[in-house]
Design a protein around this nucleic acid. Structure first.
Lengths: 210, 210
DNA sequence: AGATTTCTTAAATGATGATTTAAAATATTA
DNA sequence: TAATATTTTAAATCATCATTTAAGAAATCT
């Protein structure tokens, strides 16, 4: 006997709100009831479709990852590494400021970083490491070969953590600090700021290491 | 009848481990049982001394704040703002890498930022705002008067978030990434990196805005 | 339609963790 | 030391959630 047509709809609605709630509150503070409520589903559905809160969490991770548009290695060809960095930072900032699909994975990642559940140990290397490689490559190119892995890594951390501002600080707090609504324009200005700041930073660090 | 001499000892032991546990796991994931266990106290002691988990949390915040050595406004006098920034970043990094007293407040702050409990709304402005003012002042001085409040704020965010690397990433993960133990020396190199990176960043942003 | 399987639900059960209670232990003062 | 106040404890209670159950509703297939 085959599956029902409507079948997986509720399942995916649950998965969707799981992404939302876990991203917002982290694993512990999120409740199954909350997730199901948002999905318009009965709590038992979590067990039916996913067996567990923890299994749901893992699936939510994978789901959020799949849906996130990661800054891919920009087609090398004739683009200068500086330009690549610009593109990379812009896409990072765009992702991080997004509250759906894209932003969710980044938030899940941050929450796991800050208070690890230990549930996604396997995924970690598989998903995160390749993402890092891209930025590391770009930085290396900008700095030239003379420079140590440590220095490149420091620059990577400098850049990524600047961008994480948007994940760390609540929208309302950010708006309060900046005394203005979080418009697309503001986001773009922030991205440009980080680009200018970081390019100069990289150059300076590169120079001081030779 | 007066208080007992041994009285407040257990109380302060509980407060101490509350700082530890809350800093490590955040409000939700932390359990009263865990806190009391570490303090060698009975769970009921929390109620006796603090009435509540939530009240304990608030006190832990205040305690951690008091114990943290905040980067004070370096005595102005003849120190250049650049030098002030160096000192500031060093002390920030030192605090953030510390796992006792100092680091605890910074971690509590981060955890609250990332997933607010709403329990310390009052303290927020009172404690956090003054801290920010110092760095904002230094940056303003470096950039000169020509520059907008937004630009100064962006720089502030760039710097603080770079330093937050140490709060965000678990020690073991950091050691894995850097392929070396987290020595005092490494911390210092990181601080120096952030200083060089940020000074150049500030200058570049300042120039591009004139 | 009738048989079969998939979904959905309300309510029950269990587990974990916070909070309370009431009695026991320990210190202080006179 | 006796009287009194403070602190500590084990066990009970309560609340919140996660998880299971068992029965009903809705599709699908023959």
């Amino acid at each position: 006997m085959t599956k029902r047509a409507d079948g997986k709809e509720k399942r995916s609605r649950i998965l969707e709100s799981a992404c939302e709630v876990f991203a917002e509150k982290g694993y512990h503070a999120a409740t199954v009831a909350d997730i199901c409520q948002r999905a318009g589903a009965n709590v038992a559905a979590v067990n039916y479709y996913f067996t567990d809160k923890s299994a749901l969490y893992v699936e939510a991770w994978q789901q959020a990852y799949k849906q996130s548009s990661r800054p891919g290695s920009p087609e090398v060809a004739d683009i200068s590494p500086e330009e690549q960095l610009r593109i990379y930072i812009h896409s990072l900032i765009k992702n991080f400021s997004d509250h759906d699909a894209n932003g969710q994975f980044a938030r899940l990642y941050l929450m796991e970083l800050v208070n690890p559940t230990g549930l996604i140990h396997n995924l970690w290397h598989e998903l995160i490491e390749p993402m890092r490689k891209v930025l590391l490559g770009i930085i290396s190119e900008i700095m030239g070969a003379e420079v140590t892995a440590e220095t490149v890594l420091f620059c990577d951390m400098s850049i990524v953590n600047q961008c994480r501002t948007l994940l760390t600080v609540r929208r309302s707090d950010l708006e309060y600090l900046l005394a203005q609504p979080l418009s697309v324009d503001l986001i773009n200005r922030l991205a440009d700021h980080i680009i200018t700041f970081s390019l100069a930073g990289i150059k300076a660090v590169g120079k001081s290491k030779n």
